[in-house]
Design a protein around this nucleic acid. Structure first.
Lengths: 220, 220, 220, 220
DNA sequence: TATGAATGAGAATTCATTCAT
DNA sequence: AATGAATGAATTCTCATTCAT
């Protein structure tokens, strides 16, 4: 039955090194569409173009796969951002806008953004991941914003204040934007019908920066 | 023959009027902990102190139960808010702060807030609910904010601008706060260690209001 | 809350004596539509216009209910038929036709006919019922046919032969007719499009009687 | 050969080609014993020697399994019968007897006969199957009988008459025989204690053929 | 006695995981 | 190493039966 001629053409392309990456991409897609519980390993396998068994060869359990997805997409660009801040010369408002638009372009608008959404739902099932996330994503993010604000105070652009709330004010809309970007219903909660995410980001930065500027006159 | 030996606490109680509400509460809890897919109907039953069968007596399917949970907790206080706005006499900043603190107290900090989080993850499975949510929650919310801003412009408190982004700026942190409030990891993404949600809200309103005030001087 | 005035009008008609009969009728209907397993006790209750609890008051289990249905509709008219045979004077063909048409009118075309169909499917689950059926329905039926054939031989209408097969030949189409009468698909297996059951019965009797008549000539 | 070794080690076997057939056989057995509703998928699995999951791998739902069972056993031999008729030379009585005995041997006495019984009880649940059955089993069956009768008329063996009733007279006992063959109680309704199905069939054909022969003398 | 709410064993179906090929 | 057939525990949902009212 299975007599194969001694033909040298290998029908299947062998890319064993590429496999894990393809599986991770497929898994990110599956998890972002359905969440951790509802996504099926078979979906991941099909999307990755391999068999179920192969997925399990690289990632022994579904949880392992999820953790690997998170690790593969997490905490990537802090170094680049720190460089940007270090060498920035212009006004802080423009710097913040630049950083936010970059984050949106590189992370928020990509499938990786779904990870935050999944975390929001299922972090409790992965306490070790959650700790990792806290250490490698949340804290660095807050630190970077803090350094920007301190720079702005030093440059006498912003009044000195408690910046904790401002960080939340700046990060929350971005995260919401990212988390809702692939869901038509929830997206409309943030984004007006003809508004692009980039426009929203620019405008928000504008309001925040205004709100933080040195008071030229009195404040209510 | 009668195998029922210990008259333990398994008393049947007939309280048909109370059951649906109890089940709904239990379901909200279960869904908010695990999400729609991962929550088991048996969890709901145990939490409500009834048997599996009883849950199904009142809610024929898991989807029906979820929809009932949403309907029971959705779109509640718009009328009260509109009244508040209509009779408000003080500065707009104080009005916004009052509204947001109320929302937090009445909704955001309660288990009902989990509904938004579940929606974020699984709305696609419930298109009819999503439409309802859009109509009865999101749109009214946006409209109320819009009316506040217009009032402030009329009173010459705020400069006139495109308020779409401001709405997002105001709503996103509240939603994030609500969605992360019951998860220790994600909560720290927004809230600084010793900060209360109320403090965060007040401070954020302060920054936004500042950012919208009539320019006393020039803007960068 | 439920204060009822000392009004003497009883809202509900009390017919405790009629209850079991109504439940049996409802059960026959339900069983005939869906079979024993698929029919639900609640269907029976609703059809009978009582509550589930009431059904169980009269018939402790579903099996008991089924057995009661069978007993209520079984083995009914043998005496009447025996009388008819005893006093018959005309040709045997007419007698058989008369008996068959009566059976069809009184039993085969009524809901009671469904019992045979259900039996066919589920007799194994009710061995005691099956024995009862054998004793009180099948044997008497065969005996009556036997007596008719013997009468016909005595009257020199029929040639003497082994009548066992003839009984099967006579009974099978009637039973099939009864069992398929309420199912449009299977009914067409027997009944031609514009044929009535009565026409079919008459014609079949005609053929059988012909086949049994004294040979006037030779037989192949 | 096909007896499973009494070795208790539950070895997994991979025989994807053989599985569907084995499952179908097991399902036919289970359905014929209990009917569609009462048969459990686990029964089918155990009978087939596989796990529940394996049954569902090949047949996604219980209905699908039943439909597959029907298709596997339905309407098979019409071509063979038509050939037989075309080349028949002898008397029609012998031809009919031959056909009926063949049907009994090849279909009526096999487990496949149970399909008719299940249909009789539960066809309403499968309207598409019912239509298929009507088209591919019932109609061809009637057509074949019709062609035999017309041949007999042409050969002047049978008097010309309306054959619709005769078809019913011929088919009903066969179907009843098949449907009751595996149930000891109902079987005795048709078959006398020491009678074989083959004897019954031969004798019935004899009576019918007699009843249809050209009248040598007068007819009632 | 009648009701229908409550129960829980059981059935169909799903899917992470295993393992023969 | 790769495949996908096979497994069975877990999950939704059903319904005969029980029992508080």
């Amino acid at each position: 039955m299975s007599k194969t001629l001694p033909c040298s053409t290998t029908k299947r392309e062998r890319r064993p090194d590429a496999r894990p990456g393809e599986i991770l991409s497929a898994a990110l897609l599956a998890f972002s569409k359905l969440g951790f519980t509802a996504a099926r390993m078979e979906d991941v396998a099909r999307e990755a173009g391999v068999s179920k068994g192969t997925v399990f060869r690289y990632f022994p359990t579904k949880s392992d796969l999820f953790k690997a997805v998170v690790h593969a997409h997490i905490g990537p660009r802090f170094e680049a951002w720190r460089e940007l801040i270090k060498h920035a010369t212009g006004p802080t408002g423009a710097l913040i806008e630049e950083l936010m638009l970059r984050w949106w372009r590189d992370t928020g608008s990509t499938p990786a953004a779904a990870i935050s959404r999944i975390f929001l739902q299922e972090a409790q099932q992965f306490p070790d991941l959650a700790e990792y996330y806290e250490t490698h994503v949340i804290q660095p993010g807050r630190d970077i914003l803090q350094s920007i604000f301190e720079r702005a105070v030093a440059r006498e652009e912003f009044r000195n204040t408690d910046f904790e709330a401002v960080k939340a004010l700046a990060m929350a809309p971005l995260l919401m934007l990212a988390m809702t970007h692939h869901d038509s219903v929830m997206r409309s909660a943030l984004l007006a019908p003809n508004q692009t995410p980039e426009q929203l980001i620019s405008k928000m930065v504008d309001v925040i920066v205004h709100g933080l500027q040195q008071p030229t006159g009195e404040v209510s």
